[in-house]
Computed example of a mutant assay.
Amino acid sequence: MDEVKLFGFWASPFSRRVIWALKLKGVEYEYIEEDLPYNKSDLLLQYNPVHKKIPVLVHGGKPIAESLVILEYIEVWPHNPLLPKDAYERSVARFWAKFIQEKTQPMWEFFAKHGEEQQKAIKDNYEILRTIEEHGLGDKKFFGGDQIGVADLVFGMVIHMLAPMEEVVGGVKFIKADSFPRLHAWVRHFSEHPVIKDNVPDYTRIVDFLEKRRELYWKSQHNH
């Protein structure tokens, strides 16, 4: 069997979703933690010379970069498929994975910004979550039905990043049972899945990481 390696960063939701996918598939792999952002390894730069970012999956010596691309590639292992067999359902799963990927920026914006800019980001977040609640998730347990799929793994950042962000910012709570009942139920189902539950970063460590990151971001803004 060809060797599998994953270059990642412990706090990154992008490498976290790949870890979940590999674990769900039961694929054995070697994990290489990168010292980000300033001390990237020569191997990472060699395997991803274009973006110079994690995650990078290396399978049989061949590198695959970008988390969405990696999630699709992982289907090379047929056990526990993450994408439906039906072509139309597969296109729907890809659509929502891409939509969520593109819309995560406001989630970081509300965390990083002040005043009016922050309020706008919070409003944008609610609109995005409303769209996902009504059109993406519907009445299903997971985006694709009864099993975790690609869109769930992409949206999974909310279970280990959003709550710590809300704590750091203070006074904000997005996914509540009364405002987003379907998403609230999804969070419960997803976070209780054994593979997910056993592979989330420590909450306190994430809060600490985010507080430092926010402080550095504000300093860099004030120095411009």
Rank of each mutant, 00 (worst) to 15 (best):
M1Y: 06
A11S: 12
S15A: 15
R17H: 01
A21H: 01
E30L: 14
E30A: 12
I32N: 12
E33S: 12
E33Q: 15
P37R: 03
N39V: 00
L45G: 00
K53N: 06
P55Q: 03
L57P: 00
G60K: 12
G60R: 14
V69R: 05
V69A: 14
L71A: 09
V76A: 13
V76I: 13
V76T: 09
W77A: 12
P78I: 04
P81D: 15
A87F: 11
Y88C: 06
V92T: 06
F99M: 05
T104N: 05
F110I: 08
K113V: 02
E116N: 05
K120M: 05
I132A: 01
E134V: 06
G136D: 02
D139F: 05
K140P: 10
K141W: 15
F142L: 11
G144I: 03
G145P: 07
A151L: 02
D152M: 06
D152S: 07
L153G: 04
G156W: 03
E166A: 06
G170D: 14
G171S: 08
F174R: 04
F190G: 07
F190M: 02
S191D: 08
H193P: 14
V200P: 08
V200D: 00
T204V: 12
E211L: 11
K212G: 14
K212A: 02
